[in-house]
Write a protein that binds this DNA or RNA. Structure first.
Lengths: 225, 225
DNA sequence: CAGGCTTTCAAACGTATGTTTCAAACAGAC
DNA sequence: GTCTGTTTGAAACATACGTTTGAAAGCCTG
């Protein structure tokens, strides 16, 4: 065994269990027994459960953010001064995610599911960690989105970005389950690339929707401007 | 005090704490101390923590699903045989949610956050409970969506519905946090009605997007038809 | 006001958690 | 081989959890 095969085994087990069950619902004993290492190994190698969570994120987010920066570099160079289009920007992100080297066939959906958890179950420490470590490529993505949608107000853009993130994280986080359902119901095979190919135009269309809707509230409640 | 003021106080406290922190992260001791009732009261009145979770959902989901059925009835009657449009269908749902009688000013966002949690943190028992109790209006909503988008293939529709659910559940499940961020960043106040007013056209546009995208994968990977 | 049923209360139970301890096993350098 | 620092191991720690208990208090009916 390599010197710190233990560390990787813990990370592998933790990653999968976190993605399956969430953070609080996954105990160190589950992790260590799945990883076939001693319970104390987590605190020895990582210091605490929270630090382990950070390490799980860092392991895939660090190479991913590097890939993403490169993709953005290439894109901006290719556009030669002009701001990349919305489709190009979304696609640069999607392609970076899909083409990341995977540890196994479940890699990409675990990756997405973890991102979704980070958003929805974030316990303060995680959000702070992610913001601090990976805020830069995220900000850059935001800037590109902004330049690709100059017609939107800041507030509109903000919310539509949230909608995009939601559709993406949610779909990807359960893409295995959704794929199975589709297989059983309609007998259709679907690859993660195909899901992406359907998702991107959905997002682009939503992002570029014409109007904010006027809410017709017949009585009670104040209508929204 | 009314006879079972205790029950309502527990439900109120539980609802708010669940929405703030999630299910596993909220202990019975937090709930009972916030509600100012004895710890044993939860198990006495509800039987278990899981049953309390179900009761919290039932309290707002039962009247909501009734409201929703009525809204769908009215919509279908108004359309007089012709299938309602996508916008009408989405709006019937949104309006039913927004116009539910609220116990307090935070009511609607708690409501939404709980729905988001139900989707993202569902622990089996909850999903089963919701499916059993409220599967009917959900199926009806799905049927309306199908009739409103006859141009879509079953597979396309399936995935786009997932995208819609994702954007909605995800956004709503963290809408308070997102609102705060927006408040700090841009100094803008946002109501839940405004979020809905932005979300619906986003979803409608995405749902009706023209094309599935052709994926340009420069090398490796097989392009998608 | 007496009786029986319901509700509250403080305390304890058993279990599971994250973390710590300290001795044993191991690794590589001299 | 011996010595050093690192890693593993079994066990225990303290704490928090959901749940149960059994007695006290409250309430309503007769």
């Amino acid at each position: 065994m390599a010197q710190s095969d233990t560390v990787d085994r813990i990370l592998d087990a933790a990653e999968e269990l976190f993605a399956d069950r969430g953070f609080s619902e996954t105990s160190l004993r589950m992790i260590t027994s799945k990883a076939k290492v001693n319970l104390a190994a987590v605190n020895y190698h990582f210091g605490s459960k929270n630090a382990l969570i950070h390490a799980v994120f860092a392991r895939f987010l660090t190479p991913f953010s590097a890939t993403l920066e490169t993709a953005f570099d290439e894109l901006e160079e290719r556009c030669d001064g002009k701001p990349p289009t919305l489709n190009q920007t979304l696609w640069a992100l999607t392609e970076s995610a899909v083409r990341m080297p995977q540890r196994n066939e479940k890699g990409i959906s675990i990756f997405m599911r973890l991102l979704g958890l980070a958003y929805t179950q974030s316990q303060g420490h995680l959000r702070k960690f992610l913001e601090q470590e990976y805020g830069d490529p995220f900000s850059r993505f935001m800037r590109l989105l902004k330049e690709a949608t100059p017609q939107l107000s800041s507030v509109d853009r903000y919310w539509r970005i949230q909608f995009m993130l939601g559709a993406t994280a949610f779909t990807m986080s359960s893409s295995d389950a959704l794929r199975d359902i589709l297989q059983n119901k309609l007998g259709v095979e679907t690859t993660i690339q195909e899901i992406a190919a359907r998702l991107v135009p959905f997002l682009a269309a939503g992002m570029q929707a014409e109007d904010k809707m006027l809410i017709p509230l017949p009585d009670s409640q104040t209508p929204v401007a």
